[in-house]
Design a protein around this nucleic acid. Sequence first.
DNA 1: CCGTTTTCTTGATTTTTGTCAAGTAAACTG
DNA 2: CAGTTTACTTGACAAAAATCAAGAAAACGG
Lengths: 189, 189
Amino acid sequence: MTDLEQYLHSYFTFDQDDLVKVSALFKKKTLNKGDYFLKAGKKCNQLCFIQSGLLRIYADVDGKEVTQWISTKGYFVADLSSLLFQTPSLWNMQALTNLDIFVIERAEYNRLGEIIPKWPETEKLFLAHCFKMMEDRIFSFISMTAEERYHFFFEKNREIFNQVPLQYLASMLGMTPETISRIRRKQLI
Amino acid sequence: MTDLEQYLHSYFTFDQDDLVKVSALFKKKTLNKGDYFLKAGKKCNQLCFIQSGLLRIYADVDGKEVTQWISTKGYFVADLSSLLFQTPSLWNMQALTNLDIFVIERAEYNRLGEIIPKWPETEKLFLAHCFKMMEDRIFSFISMTAEERYHFFFEKNREIFNQVPLQYLASMLGMTPETISRIRRKQLI
DNA sequence: CCGTTTTCTTGATTTTTGTCAAGTAAACTG
DNA sequence: CAGTTTACTTGACAAAAATCAAGAAAACGG
């Protein structure tokens, strides 16, 4: 089993046959640190799965970069509405480190339903999990202080927090790097 | 065409035949002000479509109510992960006014894919739109001040803002009623 | 391994937002 | 329509977080 098959297997209840069919549609690819998987304004024509490395998703807002999320090993990444509706993407997606990914083209992605009968149902359940994550994230913004939110994310995403520059973490948590630095200091004393 | 068919038609590109098949699975129902569509801790076994009235979605957090959203005419409402995975819901859903809804039971909802071949694809596109809304909302929390966020939501949801008690609006925007009151005063001067 | 660049920490200060409390206005109810 | 409840506004103050600036630490590149 390839890494991709391994991951698909852990997410979805596919049999070996389907695993092979699906993973055959993905092509292995590497990005160097600083390379873009997607640029804002362009249409998203691919979906990727991250095998190793970090991918930062951010937008430019009046000259400032707002980091939306940082994806790591095991994430599927695309701008879903751009991929489906072929609208220009709002997001830049840039490799924070050298990156190993598996990429599926839009055309192939759209044929998954024909190739694997249970794909639509599987995809729905996957999207529902993403929904839950976004809902939890919104909840953290409306019900927690900066400090509580920091800990909430830290618990759920330890591997990211130790590898990513503070400025990016701060932005995705809706606070400043200084605030995180002060929260961290509190822990030590 | 019933109101529900009308709405389904405006969201989804169904032909008349499919519209009738789908809307036949919904039952018309009314809730009185204060009634619950769903209580936290219970499994969500229905999905509803709001024809008129306001439905507040909120959670209890150490004795305080956190309002997640207020849904109005034209919204489909359910706790998606509870509906699909049969986990206990985090959310209370309570009628803020008398409410006219169309309700589909979980069992019928799960059969939609058999009844309407294009349902899975349609549902995916619908979920993608919801995704976009949640993404925009997260973006508002990480990139805007309370005042900017207020205006951002006001522009997109005028009908809600004029009907709903300030305390609920404030909670769903992640600020206090006093803050909204002061933002509104600024507009007048 | 040394200089450069980037990132992180810290303090002082300002701004934003929250909290508390009181008073006013509006909505509901019998 | 009078009394009650609920919602809204306002001010004074407190707390949280942002900003600015400087220095320390770490990472990077030849």
